[in-house]
Amino acid sequence: MSSSGILKSSLAKKYAMALTGLFLCLFLVGHLLGNLQLFIPGVEGQTAFNEYALFMTTFPLVKVLSYLTYASVLFHVVDGVVLTLQNRKARPARYAVEKGSANAGWSSRNMAVLGTIVLVFIVTHMQNFWWKMHFDKAMPTQTVNGVELKDLHTVVMNFFDPAINSMAAAAAGLYVLGMFALGFHLWHGFSSAFQSMGVRHETYTPWIERAGQAFAVLVPAAFASIPLYLFLTQA
């Protein structure tokens, strides 16, 4: 088979979906570890978080990884859209009665919708923080040991502070909702990626499935706990 053949094949598209998806799972872990620093109180926490933010935006290896992440998101989305359109075309006439719940889980049947919600969340989220960090000239700063850092910590705190941001409650709510969508997306997506790559084993697959479900619950929950914590402690 020619190399262009494999790219056109339905299975190749699934491999791409799986690999980008799994890579984004890794990204989630890294991102979460960084974000958990928001739980550190006082100046100590502010410093740690801002130094981390500087590291993430300047360190060359991280830069490479971040471009990979952007590419993965983009590919995952485009590939997902292509697959969904093909799938629609494969069944032009819908059933009058279709009992999807009889034979498949809810999240597995709604990956496209869940993915779209997650995408909307990502765009909003990047506009709220990533864009400010990179392009906002009016970013507040913090001086640590004579070095002036962009104060992303304060931006985050203020964003979820109802005294400062009148929409803080809505923002926290949106973030929690986004994480719900992510959780359901991962609930199916994590183990599905292994299946797509052909990794299946009588003994190990149940463990992969359990790990995927744990991941799908714990990671989004941990993410969601941050805006909730910030909002509730500042309210």
């Binding site: 094949s9 339905s10 699934k14 093909q86 799938n87 075309k89 999807g100 034979n103 049947r109 199916h188």
Partner: peptide, 18 residues
């Protein structure tokens, strides 16, 4: 066989297991 399957216009597997 996969090539022919794609040519026939079947959809893609999303591992729902249905």
């Amino acid at each position: 066989m996969v090539e022919q399957m794609d040519k026939e216009g079947f959809g893609n597997c999303t591992n729902t297991g249905a």
